[in-house]
Amino acid sequence: MNKILVAGKVEGIVLKSNDPINFLGTVDKKTGIITDKNHTLFEKSIKNSILVFPSGVGSSVGAYTIYSIKSNNTAPIAMICKKADLTVATGCALANIPLITITDEQFESIKTGMKVILDTDTTTLIHYQ
């Protein structure tokens, strides 16, 4: 379902993960690099990406991690999830990172490397370029 959790407008390149993300403990706050060996994004940086993933998992303290990576300029410029979980929702709200949820079909069609505009003031939300 389409929901706007944190409003905003950004333009950038998609980085997609089919695995959920546990922000507490699997993201290096100084670099934005995923440090979990078992994660599909292992050794990739989420910095300045439009990060697309199913949902957040793990401790709600992970919201502070999202705030931290934003303060360190290593955060994604927007996040797009299938399901809204409270950790990612509050983390993005703290850090003022736009966050929306999308349908399963939309999630399937969006791919790493795509250039998109996310604009929560428009009805389609995501514009592919």
Binding site: A84, L86, A89, A93, L94, N96, L99
Partner: peptide
């Protein structure tokens, strides 16, 4: 603004 952003994000999620 931040406090309302948190409440709206939480409210939309729930």
């Amino acid at each position: 603004q931040m406090a309302y952003r948190i409440l709206v994000a939480t409210g939309e999620a729930t």
